[in-house]
Nucleic acid binder design. Structure first.
Lengths: 380, 380
DNA sequence: AGCTGTTACTATAGCGCTCAAGTAGCGGCG
DNA sequence: CGCCGCTACTTGAGCGCTATAGTAACAGCT
């Protein structure tokens, strides 16, 4: 990258592809030596290595991933497959940031991300199977963890590096990273309780998702602990569903004094229903969300939310996955015995790493929270 | 060592990889015959082909993309690189749906999508260079078209299949697909004019984007045509920027009676500012957006928007790109003369296809528009 | 019978790289 | 002095597939 590429614009690269053989010829060595040199492996003298590298740069050589892969080298690609409808992807603030975090770390290590959207978990598993069978990826990151997720045993059986995003707990023998949803829940409930709320509702997404179940449990648990009334309202993950659920909550007698939504999108939709019904937010009913976003911030009132730093989450996932891949290369072929399937050595395979959630208190739960957004911080 | 072959199919697990040589041996032919058979190419009899296919299935054979690529076959991958900050990606409804549309078509043709996020246009170009040099992708789709986009000449020089998303107009010799932003603008302006508005403001995103410039021009043009007052307010693409711009608009004397925002996110943020300032929407100021989303729909008032069917847009882009790739395979190596750089034959290289925008009238411009969203269409 | 043409294959090179095994050269050491 | 061990390479064999000749078998035609 030091040399301004496309150098002195020679025929614009139209000629034959430059191979290590070309470099070898020029350097007066064999292609094997070049291979050692460009891959930073021992076996060539420092002087030769440098000479080779110079020539490679000069010739504008690029390695052929196909040839490398065919010869057994890692393909420097990780995969991620999404089995959810497009709108969900589009509307969720979390996802884009998570992906960005992933990319950031992967790109830095010269890895690329291959994505695929499918219709069902079965199709997702099938995709993993083929990716691995074809050696298209060195590892995968599995998102949208569900309760009793069928992808876990499938990935274990396939026996190639995989990282589960979600937790806590052990997912078969697969390693994972997660955000502590129980802690996030406690932050939210405690915050509301400290503001004097004693009837809190939670408008939850689909309970089949692991984190939803996790939140449900933590929510009810914490409410009981604090001796306050906590009610669960199931909904899908869409804005529409949240609106319906919120409307239903309003018919309760008495209605809750605070509502926690599973996402920013849901919180926004729910808040609209409240405001439209003449309910004051936060005076009559406070609102909080598990997910932060620019919209949650600009909304009036701004929505109190959990910041889970999706970017950081993505970075963590990528870092962990790369470790797993590296480990799996060391102990060559994971054999079929389940214990090492995750790729990481033996018992520590299922090691888990977490991100700390933080609470961002805003106007939707605290009337005194800095209201000034029309006079924004930007523009000195 | 129990060969726990984990799957009913033989060799599906840990064993050696199944190759066409294995199939050939079993079928009593050479690997070349197998290659012809599995690729649906002429040269083998129907009977032999079927026998080979059966064996391939039975053996659970999967082609090796690496080997294929090395031998000169297409890699069945298209690339897309995004040079924008993560939040933008996350907040924009458009992007997810567009990607989904892309994937849908690509997957159906057994193509995969490789994505990369970078920091700058230069890094983006560098990525294209390397992707092509390494033969990692068969083609790329270029999004977020800018005015005088440096990526156009770069892609032309690289001389590999590429599709420009955005337009209209010719982008060097590159083919493109686009949504007619001028028409969308007319739809919006006409709608507002027909509702009696004669002072319309447009809160625009960064003008360096092609479609923004396009909209600006169309907006001013149409306003002039209709003899109404149109004003342009520049902003970034964020919610924050839109909020600021809206606040500024309110200080004008007289303020506009309608505001058109460049995206749903901006429209939402702007509307909050209006409502917070006690402005009635749409009675005092009407609001419309170029981008639709679930949030725009659930918002109260619901936001009038342009539906550009991002999914369909993605599908179109993928379809077009695959055509371009196919064409470029026919006429082998694009030579360096710019004319054929897009991959498509000669003069029709720059052919362009468009998607029709539609106007979705909602409460933010029309108080009579079906207000019922708390009683949503779903359920029942 | 001899020639051209098909069809249905086979044989043989690679594609660009990696890796295990081999070798040349050289200083050190008993 | 002969052997060891080490470094710095070279040799050669693939990885799994595609592609381009080439060949055998057989039909059609004059």
């Amino acid at each position: 990258m030091s040399t301004r590429n496309s150098s002195p614009a020679p025929g614009s690269g139209r000629g034959q592809r430059v191979t290590i053989a070309d470099i070898a010829r020029r350097a007066g060595v064999t292609s094997a030596a070049v291979s050692l040199a460009v891959n930073g492996r021992p076996g060539v003298s420092a002087a030769t290595r440098e000479r080779i590298m110079d020539i490679a740069r000069e010739l504008d050589w690029e390695p052929s991933p196909a040839a490398r892969a065919l010869a057994g080298a890692p393909v420097l690609t990780v995969g991620m497959v999404l089995a959810r409808p497009a709108e969900v992807l589009g509307n969720e603030a979390f996802f884009g940031a998570f992906t960005a975090g992933l990319q950031e770390v992967l790109s830095a290590q010269d890895y690329s991300l291959q994505m695929k959207m499918v219709e069902s978990p079965e199709a997702e598993i099938e995709t993993y199977r083929r990716w691995f069978a074809q050696r298209r990826v060195d590892g995968v990151v599995m998102v949208d963890l569900r309760v009793d997720d069928p992808r876990i045993p499938a990935l274990e059986e396939i026996g190639q590096p995989a990282l589960v995003v979600g937790g806590p707990g052990h997912h078969g023998s697969l390693p994972s990273v997660y955000v502590d949803d129980a802690q996030a829940t406690n932050l939210l409930v405690d915050h509301l309780a400290s503001r004097g709320h004693s009837r809190i509702a939670r408008v939850a997404g689909t309970a089949e998702f692991f984190h939803t179940a996790q939140r449900d449990r933590a929510f009810l648990g914490r409410c009981t602990e604090l001796g306050i009334e906590g009610s669960l309202q199931d909904a899908g993950y869409g804005a529409q569903d949240a609106a319906v659920a919120t409307a239903e909550l309003l018919t309760a007698t008495p209605p809750p004094t605070a509502i926690i939504f599973d996402s920013d999108e849901m919180a926004l939709a729910g808040t609209h229903v409240l405001l439209e019904s003449g309910v004051q937010v936060p005076e009559q009913i406070a609102v909080a969300s598990y997910e932060d976003s620019a919209l949650a911030r600009t909304h009036r009132p701004a929505i109190t939310a959990i910041g889970r730093s999706a970017i950081e989450y993505g970075r963590l996932a990528a870092t962990r996955l790369l470790e797993i891949i590296a480990a799996s290369r060391k102990r060559p072929q994971g054999d079929a015995t389940a214990t090492t399937a995750g790729g990481a050595p033996g018992s520590e395979a299922a090691e888990v790493r977490a991100i700390e959630p933080v609470l961002l208190v805003r106007g939707s739960t605290d009337p005194d929270a800095e209201p000034a957004l029309s006079t924004p911080p930007i523009r000195g």
